[in-house]
C-alpha cells in the first residue's frame, strides 16, 4: 500500500507533519517547511532590505537548519539581507570546541562570514574555569545568562541590526510552561514574542517560532545537513529537561499540543493594576536589567570576589 502525498497526489509520502497530520512527499515537505518560515518572516515583518543579520550558530540542529534556510530564503525571495554567522565559545573542552568545528564547516558550506566570541575574552572566565569554582549545581545559570549577553556583544562587534536564533516551537512551548510553573509573570508575555528589542537597538527574533522540532530534524536528515549533537558535558538543565519530557509526552498523544501551548501563551493577559518589574539598565555595564546590577555583572562579581553563590537563587531579589 503506497501512501500518496496529500499535496501533489503524485509522489509517495515520507513524512507525517505533526502540526497538521498531513502526509507529504519529500519535495512537498521541503516546500511547505520553507514556505511556512518565509510566511512567518513576512507576516511579522522581521526584516527590511539591507538589514545586517547575525545567525546565532551553535553547530546544533536548529541553528544549522536556520543558517541553511535563511541563506536559501534570502536568495529565493530577495530579502536583501547581509547574513553572518555568530558563535559563542563558552570554553567547554570536549563540547564546544567540537561543535565550533561544525560551525566552521557550515561557514564553508554556506559561504557566510563567521565571528566567534568567547566567554574568556568577554568576561575573563571560561565555563571550564567557572565550573571549577562553582561546581556542577548552578553552572547552567552562569552559562545561560552569559550567553544571552555574549550574543548581543558579538552583534555589536559585527555591527548588525538583528540576531536570529534557532528557537523552535517545542522550545517556546517549553518556556511558556516553565514560566507558568515558576510563576514568572514578567517573562510569560515576553517569551512568546517573535521579535524582541534588547540592548540598544539590536533586534532578536525567532523565525522557527512555529516550526516543530520534528520537522527541523527531518529536514536536516533528508537534506543531509551537517550538524553536531552531543549533550553538554556539564549536565543538561534539569528543570528544562523535565518540562521537555512532559512536552514530548503530550506531543505523542496530541501533536497539536505544542502549537496550542504557544497560542495559550500568546493569549495570556495580565490583570490591570498588576505591578511588573520596571526594565532599566545595569549601572555597571549598561545592559538592560530590572535591578541595579544586571544578572551577568552580579554573577561576575561573585566569581571575582570568590563568592560564586552571589546572584544565584532567592538572595538575588
Amino acid at each position: 500500500m503506497v501512501r500518496l502525498c496529500v499535496i501533489c497526489n503524485k509522489e509517495r509520502a515520507i513524512v507525517k507533519r505533526p502540526k497538521t497530520g498531513q502526509q507529504v512527499c519529500r519535495e512537498c515537505f521541503y516546500y511547505v517547511f520553507e514556505t511556512e518560515i518565509h510566511n512567518t518572516i513576512t507576516d511579522n515583518k522581521l526584516f527590511k532590505q539591507g538589514d545586517k543579520v547575525a545567525i546565532a550558530a551553535s553547530g546544533g540542529k536548529d541553528s544549522t537548519v536556520l543558517a541553511y534556510v535563511m541563506k536559501l530564503l534570502n536568495q529565493r525571495y530577495q530579502y536583501g539581507l547581509d547574513l553572518f554567522l555568530l558563535s559563542i565559545d563558552e570554553g567547554i573542552t570536549g563540547y564546544r570546541d567540537d561543535s565550533l568545528e561544525t560551525v566552521k564547516r557550515n561557514q564553508q558550506q554556506y559561504d557566510l562570514p563567521l565571528k566567534i566570541v568567547s566567554y574568556s575574552e568577554l568576561y575573563g572566565w571560561s565555563m571550564d574555569q567557572i565550573v571549577k569554582e562553582v561546581g556542577l549545581k548552578n553552572n547552567c545559570t552562569f552559562c545561560g545568562v552569559f550567553r544571552r549577553q555574549a550574543l548581543d556583544r558579538g552583534a555589536v562587534i559585527l555591527d548588525v541590526d538583528h540576531i536570529v536564533t534557532g528557537h523552535n516551537a517545542d522550545d517556546i512551548a517549553e518556556t511558556v510552561l516553565m514560566n507558568i510553573l515558576r510563576g514568572d509573570i514578567a517573562r510569560l508575555p515576553r517569551c512568546t514574542e517573535i521579535c524582541t528589542t534588547g540592548d540598544g537597538s539590536i533586534r532578536r527574533s525567532k523565525p522557527f517560532k512555529y516550526t516543530y522540532e520534528k520537522e527541523i530534524v527531518m529536514y536536516a536528515y533528508f537534506k543531509k545537513l551537517d550538524y553536531f549533537s552531543t549533550e553538554c558535558i556539564y549536565s543538561p538543565n534539569a528543570y528544562r529537561g523535565h518540562v521537555r519530557t512532559f512536552i514530548k509526552d503530550l506531543e505523542s498523544i496530541r501533536p497539536s499540543a505544542i502549537i496550542d501551548i504557544i497560542h495559550s501563551g500568546e493569549a495570556f493577559e495580565i490583570k490591570e493594576g498588576v505591578k511588573l518589574p520596571v526594565q532599566g539598565v545595569c549601572k555597571r555595564c549598561g545592559y538592560m536589567s530590572s535591578n541595579e546590577l544586571c544578572k551577568a555583572c552580579m554573577l561576575l562579581e561573585g566569581l571575582n570576589r570568590g563568592l560564586p553563590k552571589l546572584g544565584i537563587g532567592k538572595n538575588f531579589k
Binding site: 546544533g60 536548529d62 517545542d170 527541523i216 530534524v217 536528515y221 549533537s229 549533550e231
Partner: peptide
Amino acid sequence: VFISTLHGG
C-alpha cells in the same frame, strides 16, 4: 534509522 531530537540546538 533512529534520530534523537532531544539534543541541544
